[in-house]
Design a protein around this nucleic acid. Structure first.
Lengths: 343, 343
DNA sequence: GTTCACACGGTAACCGGTTACAAGGCCGCA
DNA sequence: TGCGGCCTTGTAACCGGTTACCGTGTGAAC
């Protein structure tokens, strides 16, 4: 591979001149520039971004660290990030923490010197740990994670409010015995959704200890919940799953047990994954514009890179929207989400 | 941010010793190493990967260039790649050609000096152009693309055979008037699938010029095809869409027009996206293990990086599998896919 | 006590660019 | 013709690591 020195030699100029010509720095005469460009073409020279970023002290790359890469949720986030990054000529370096704390530390450390900033989504990490791993000098925006004491900017979905609104809607629709299928215990999204559910049940439904079944956001755990529900003879006229994936498994499980949705029991999910509208009956859910999560975070990061100072106060909270579909009989009263108190 | 020299100074040793201690290179005494490590801890030193890769002449990163980042298809590919890459401690640098030829060139050029190898999926690029863009010195594996004259290793899905098998199955199931919804004209996958369909129709069905409707792989174009079909009164007892996405739109369109699937018309797709099994009736399709496309390509790239020489002869062809579901009435005779001639 | 081998650790070149600074050439003006 | 100033170009330091090569010091062998 040709280097800048090869080009300079070929064009009969110094490396400095070659560099200036290639980068269009003005103080190069037209003939000199032409000679350099001819050499570039002849040798098929492409600048070595690694070396370049060493001196320029910027890499035009942002690191994206996600808990996993599975499913439409993450691909939508990446797409949202890429959309904005691409406009600014930035590249994406993917890091995957593969669910392990140790891997998370490694993923973040490996980014040093490769990226100008970081987009991190650590749904089940304690803030103190995160603080240890992150380099304070590296601009960082958190995804779907309120860093609390860390004073880092973040973009999050108002899970509490969303769950509250959905629960309210189910109650308004006439449900009295609503069961919640929770997400992973350590997952913040899951916990916030559960809190929203519990609070709505208490404040609107007047129910103190609503039934909650365990789950882990997987389709299988939704099916499992269906079994528990039916075999345990848990009285329920509606089930609110903490995400759509589990709602899908739940519906399949209920169908197997001979329960009809929404006649025997209403079902609601959270996220509005593409599959939701295609189910039969179609799934009522809280719509989250997942790609906006990514693009908003990326825009915040770009602002920091341009010199602005952003802290936790600059956080953006995306409010999910209630989408009433077939699994709640299409007759949900669309309660105003803003009626719910903030967490 | 602390540099190696800072660490060396703090530990009272030279940079060389610090480097050796940190990288565990043996010729350092235990006390010296301890001193260095203490300094590392104290200064919170993390090696600068950019600088390191400059001298080591490897980046532990592979570039992944995809035509787009939309939908489950690409997220599955990335997941497959990551699975293998992660095991070898490699990182992923994402490049998106955003559908434009010019962007493709830019994306590939931007990778120079950042990656040790490239995984490229250029579904609608001419091989000659691709050859111009690619650096022959950079190990490259193509995804879903037979480079033909380029002698580059690739991983592809046997689209021809898959379409042939599906068409054969529809015929075996009793369909006589099968309509194909094609994909984008310049897309190689789409063209191969169309060829498989046409050949099967001719060789097995004895039909010379089977009906083909235009499409572009989008759900909307499937719905459009449904309209054409119904309004144009095209006689059809089965429709074979070139991908699942279009089949989904098609089914919705047919339902709107009052046509029943599979009673009035059978429907088949291609890809087996996760949605397929959840439709009602569930979608018959050719199952492609998309993640394997990615992981296989990554494994080939790793072999090249380890010193092996791989050319077009080392290509891997993944054979899709027929999945008969509800939209073909669950009664398709599973014709052996191997009965079809190779393209 | 001297010599030698060997292990440890330091100096400096290098990876491939960028850029501060200096040098040289050309011009205009007196 | 001589001088100053500007514009172009070259030299070399630098980014932050790695590593070839060399020097030093210790212990063992004579």
């Amino acid at each position: 591979m040709a280097t800048l020195r090869d080009v300079a030699r070929e064009a009969g100029v110094s490396v400095a001149t070659a560099s200036r010509a290639i980068n269009g720095l003005g103080n190069v005469t037209a003939p000199t520039r032409a000679a350099v460009m001819a050499a570039v073409k002849k040798l098929n020279f492409v600048p070595h971004s690694g070396a370049r970023s060493l001196t320029r002290r910027k890499t035009d790359t942002v690191g994206v660290i996600l808990p996993d890469l599975f499913g439409e949720f993450f691909s939508e986030i990446i797409r949202g990030i890429d959309l904005v990054a691409h406009e600014s000529g930035m590249h994406l370096l993917l890091g995957n923490m593969h669910g392990s704390t140790h891997e998370t530390a490694a993923a973040i450390a490996a980014m040093r010197g490769r990226v100008d900033g970081l987009l991190v989504m650590p749904p089940d990490l304690k803030p103190e740990l995160l603080a240890d791993y992150l380099d304070p000098a590296l601009p960082t925006v958190l995804l779907n994670y309120d860093a609390g004491p860390l004073d880092l900017p973040f973009v999050a979905v108002d899970n509490y409010q969303g769950a509250y609104a959905m629960t309210a809607a189910l109650i308004a629709r006439g449900a009295r015995q609503i069961v919640h299928i929770a997400g992973p215990k350590h997952n913040r999204d899951a916990r916030d959704r559960q809190r929203g559910f519990v609070d709505a049940m208490s404040k609107i439904g007047g129910v103190r200890n609503p039934a909650i079944l365990p789950g882990d956001f997987s389709e299988e755990s939704g099916a499992q919940a269906a079994r528990l529900l039916v075999q345990g003879q848990l009285p329920a006229d509606a089930v609110f799953a903490a995400n759509d994936q589990m709602a899908v498994g739940l519906i399949a499980g209920l169908a197997e047990a001979g329960k009809s949705v929404p006649k025997d029991v209403m079902v609601a999910g959270f996220d509005d994954i593409p599959l939701a509208r295609h189910l039969n009956p179609s799934l009522s859910t809280m719509q989250v514009h997942i790609d906006r999560l990514g693009s908003t975070a990326m825009m915040m990061l770009l602002r920091i890179l341009r010199g602005e100072t952003l802290g936790a106060a600059s956080a953006t909270i995306l409010t999910p929207e209630l989408i009433a579909r077939g699994t709640t009989a299409g007759a949900i009263h669309q309660e105003s989400a803003t009626a719910a108190p903030r967490a």
